[in-house]
Simulated assay, not measured.
Amino acid sequence: MSHDHSDSPEQILTDLLAGNDRHVAQHDESEFDAVRDAQSPPVVSVCCSDSRVSQEGMWDVSEPGQLFTVANIGNRSTVEVDGERVLDGGVAYPVTFTDTGVVAVVGHTGCGAVTAAYEVVTGETELESLPPGVQQDLDSLITMVEEAPVDLGGEKSAVVDRLVEYNVREQCEFVSGETDAAVYGFVYDFHHRYGDQDGRTYLVAAGDGDPADLVGKEHRDAVRSLL
């Protein structure tokens, strides 16, 4: 399904329903039997809600019950409750109630939310000019930018992508301290910032250890860092 702004809402609706027809046709009648009454996904993926980043697509997951997905601008794994930073419910729920043992935090190059937070901190954008909901979502990202050990004075796109990686690492550090799940941090690259393959996810964080120690030789090239 591919559209542009010239397509009418009715045409997009028709295409959505046609896409669901194809989705239904691809499923075996018994495919949901094992997960119809309960779920126990091995992984919860926390990803940016950017339209260019498909969570199921990047991991080549097509079977139901395999991936618990959380999406928001800036791939945030935490939320503030009564002044305290806690795990977002989308992460806390699966690791608490569905025996999910792995958390994957996925940022992406050219992230609009991180860019917006950067622009607020550098004075390029007034926070009050943004929709209230966006202001709230940017709050923790603005703090991240202010505290990041990244020189904000460099070339903008390069600075933003370093902040993207730092945000992933910072999110992973917090989640690791709040849960017994294994936590891995990735950056989805479609700007050739880490390499020359569109859609490659690069492992940038893995708990307190060296990510390279956790992967085989066939995936060593997927372990990289901008920091």
Rank of each mutant, 00 (worst) to 15 (best):
P149C: 14
P132T: 15
D213P: 00
A25R: 08
G154A: 05
V215G: 00
K156E: 05
G199P: 03
H27F: 15
H5I: 09
V223E: 03
G110H: 13
G195S: 08
E124F: 02
E165C: 05
D88W: 08
T179W: 12
D99T: 15
G207C: 09
E146Y: 06
V215W: 05
A205Q: 06
D50H: 01
V175D: 01
R76G: 08
H219S: 15
F186P: 05
I73C: 14
Y188L: 09
E119N: 10
V175C: 09
A116G: 09
G19K: 00
D198A: 13
N75M: 08
K156Y: 06
A18P: 00
Y188T: 06
T96H: 14
G185E: 07
M1F: 02
L214F: 11
G90H: 07
T100M: 11
F97H: 15
P149S: 13
T98G: 06
H108G: 04
Y202M: 03
E124K: 11
D99W: 12
F97S: 15
H27E: 10
V183F: 01
N75I: 02
P211K: 02
P9K: 05
L17G: 04
S225P: 07
F190I: 04
D99F: 12
A205R: 05
L16D: 04
L138A: 12
G209E: 11
V105Q: 13
D37Q: 15
E155I: 07
F174C: 02
I73F: 14
M58P: 01
V215Y: 03
G57R: 07
V204S: 00
R220W: 10
C172F: 13
Y188E: 07
R193E: 03
R76A: 13
S8R: 01
R193I: 09
G153T: 00
E128C: 07
G90L: 11
G110E: 12
Q39V: 06
T125N: 03
E84T: 15
V43P: 04
S45E: 04
D7H: 08
P131G: 06
V70H: 04
L203N: 02
A116S: 12
E63L: 12
P94T: 10
V223H: 05
R193D: 03
W59K: 04
P64A: 03
V103H: 14
S157P: 01
G57H: 00
G153E: 03
T179V: 14
R224A: 15
G123E: 12
A104S: 14
V204Y: 01
E56C: 10
T96N: 10
D82N: 06
Q39F: 02
A212P: 04
D221W: 09
A205P: 00
V150Y: 00
A117S: 13
V175F: 02
G89H: 15
K217D: 15
D7G: 02
D180S: 07
E165P: 00
Q135Y: 03
H27N: 13
H3M: 11
D4P: 00
G133N: 11
G216D: 02
V24R: 14
V43M: 08
V120H: 07
S6G: 06
G195Q: 04
G207A: 05
F186H: 09
E126H: 10
K217I: 08
D4K: 01
G209I: 10
P94I: 12
T115G: 11
E126L: 09
E218G: 13
D180E: 13
L17W: 14
V159D: 00
P131N: 07
G107V: 09
S157G: 09
E170W: 06
E146F: 09
A148L: 02
D21A: 12
D37F: 14
R169T: 11
V53K: 01
